[in-house]
Amino acid sequence: MDSSATSDLYLDITDFARGTPSWFQHLAELWTEAGLLLFGALFVAVWWFARPSGTRAVAVAVLAPLATAVAYLCSEVLKTFFTEDRPCRAVVGAGASLVACPPVGDWSFPSNHSTIAGGAAIALALARPVLAYLTVPMALLMAFSRVFVGVHYPHDVAVGLVLGGLVATLVVLLAAKPLQTLVGTMRTSRSGLALWLAGPGTGTGARPAVERGRHSAGRR
């Protein structure tokens, strides 16, 4: 992978990073990992608040983390194909990165963090569109932080964001309908766990199997 196209921009960003206050550097270091945890919390919250809704809403909410995981796997496959070394080791004249430079074999292109961030941002926005105002800036900041701390080229994170977003969108589009059918089936199940996972669906008039059974018995 030819990384010379963005090497100068990488140097500009990392030189700027080393000139920022130490508290800001620590904040960037924290965000580069903590952002993943926040996306994880959003996955859980979106699923939980989708449970009273229709089967499609639950299906897309469940697909959000799954689509992000598929995007991550695609990123890993591309890494083994391109085998781009990390800029903190490869760029001539680069200063020390703010975090430890990953070892040889932990390739740079594309950025896994950015792929996950891009996939999560789009998948969550598909599940609940208003979240795009939160998740897209989160993803952009996470991607930038990977260059800021010195472990990725700008093109690594740009491609990672696009890859994550595209893969997540494709997975949701292809899998939403089959999973929607599964959620509907789970809502008719006698299993308490299945009913809890699929949700009551009260927002669309769907009712758990137990409740429907009571109404059927009453009519008899």
Rank of each mutant, 00 (worst) to 15 (best):
V130I: 07
G95F: 03
P110T: 06
L161R: 07
L27V: 06
T80Y: 12
L98N: 09
G160P: 08
D2R: 09
A59F: 01
A64D: 06
L134E: 01
H113N: 11
P21R: 03
G201Y: 06
A175R: 08
T169Y: 13
L170W: 08
L141K: 08
V171E: 02
D8M: 02
R89D: 12
G54L: 01
M142E: 02
A194F: 11
V172E: 01
F49V: 12
A67V: 03
G35S: 15
L124I: 03
V46G: 09
V172S: 04
V99Y: 03
D106T: 08
D156I: 00
A209K: 05
V167R: 11
L98F: 06
A41D: 05
L197A: 14
A120Q: 06
L166D: 03
S145G: 14
L63Y: 02
L66K: 06
V92D: 14
T135K: 08
P65H: 04
G40W: 04
D85W: 01
V77D: 08
M138A: 11
H215I: 07
P178Y: 03
A143I: 00
G213D: 10
G19R: 12
L141I: 11
V130T: 10
M1I: 02
H152V: 00
R18V: 00
F148L: 03
L66M: 13
G105H: 08
V159F: 15
D106E: 10
N112D: 15
L66S: 10
T80C: 00
V183W: 02
T55D: 14
D106C: 01
A45E: 14
R214T: 08
S22F: 13
P154H: 02
L131C: 08
L195A: 14
W107F: 15
L182F: 02
R128L: 09
V183C: 04
S191H: 07
E29V: 12
F16P: 05
A132Y: 01
A206N: 13
L174N: 06
G150E: 03
A50F: 07
V171I: 12
A120T: 06
T181F: 04
L163G: 04
S189P: 07
R56D: 02
A120P: 11
L38Q: 09
G205H: 12
A121P: 07
R146H: 09
S108R: 05
G54Q: 07
L27E: 05
T83N: 12
K79N: 02
A71V: 01
H113Q: 08
G192T: 10
L30S: 14
L11W: 04
A67I: 03
V58R: 14
V58T: 13
T80M: 10
P65Y: 00
A5Q: 14
L63K: 02
S22G: 12
R89F: 11
A41C: 11
R214A: 10
G150K: 07
D12I: 07
